[in-house]
Amino acid sequence: MGALDGRVAVITGAGRGIGREHALLFAAEGAAVVVNDLGGANDGTGADTTPAQEVADEIRASGGQAVANSANVTSWADAASLIDQAVSEFGRLDVVVNNAGILRDAFVAGMTEEQWDAVIAVHLKGHVAVLHHAAAYWKSRAKSGSRVAASVINTASASGTTMPNPGQVNYGAAKAGIAAMTLVAAQELERYGVRVNAIAPIARTRLTLATPGMGAIFAQEVAEGEFDAFSPANISPLVAYLATEKCPITGKVFAVQGEAISELAGWHDVRVVETEGPWRIEDIAARLP
């Protein structure tokens, strides 16, 4: 018996890296998987159906259930077709893992509009487009009296939560938005039987290897037999657990890397100053620093 027996999952960006590890583990644990990947380059340009197809073929060769999908998650219509394919192929949908992402790093003073728009589109719109159509499906099922026990796992980042990274204002903003979106969606969708969580992973991928100042760290070789703290396979067990039918967790963001999982908390008061009556600028200047 697998932890995900009978579950049907859509996983975006599943042709390589962390997403590929998700797809392989989900299938090994009994889930039927729609392997979505546009197959573009690190910056989102181009398209290639090969990565998604190869992962789906690998799963089927191992006795699992999978189909490939090359929808572009930045398209509302493509996101709808992705959800529709899961239901038409496997009869239902239980899990969405939003993982697709790109990089177009630049310092804010030199960033182009295209660099901003592309990253926000793939990460933030790409998450919400798939989530929207999945949520509409689950809402319809719940309203018709069907039991829903669904799960969404979004992919944030340390760049948008605990470790802002210069040169990634677009990526960090998108990832922070994903974390906030997760908390809102968890409250909205609980009534329909849907849990929503997010992870902020640190692992060796095409994107992290291409990140200035970080690539050398992730590229360090690990001796045979030693634990590889940056392997993307370390991320997937948490995602698989959050996808299980009886997992009770919702509305959480977890950092995960190597041997460590930590729960993150958002903005909170660290110090409060108050006044009696209206504020004066000089009072603020004297008391706020």
Rank of each mutant, 00 (worst) to 15 (best):
G266T: 11
Q85P: 03
A233P: 00
V256N: 11
G167K: 08
T155I: 01
W76M: 02
D228K: 08
Q220R: 14
R7V: 10
K246G: 06
V239K: 13
R20M: 10
Q168C: 06
H123I: 06
A286M: 01
E226M: 10
T161H: 01
I18F: 04
T182R: 11
A136L: 09
M1Y: 13
I202H: 00
A185C: 03
A56H: 04
A219K: 09
Q168W: 03
F90C: 08
V169R: 05
T182H: 11
A260V: 10
A135M: 11
H268I: 02
V119H: 03
T275K: 01
G193L: 11
W116S: 07
L131Q: 12
L288V: 15
G266W: 07
S144Q: 14
G39T: 14
D84P: 00
A219N: 14
A27L: 02
E58P: 02
L124P: 08
N234F: 09
V194S: 02
K125E: 02
I153N: 02
G46T: 04
V87K: 07
A233K: 15
G2D: 13
G15C: 11
F90W: 04
T211Q: 07
A149V: 04
D78W: 06
T155M: 03
W267F: 13
H132Q: 15
A219G: 11
D105V: 07
T112P: 08
V184D: 04
A243D: 05
A158E: 05
I249P: 09
R280Q: 15
V184K: 04
R191L: 07
A56N: 08
A186H: 11
S236G: 12
I235N: 13
S88G: 00
D84W: 00
G2C: 09
V194T: 05
I281A: 14
A56V: 04
I261L: 08
R60Y: 02
A243H: 07
T208A: 02
V8F: 06
K175H: 12
P166L: 03
I11Y: 03
T155S: 05
R16D: 01
G64Q: 03
V239T: 15
L25W: 10
A106D: 14
I11D: 03
R271A: 15
G277E: 09
H127N: 12
G160V: 01
G2K: 13
S151Y: 00
A47C: 01
F230I: 01
A240V: 05
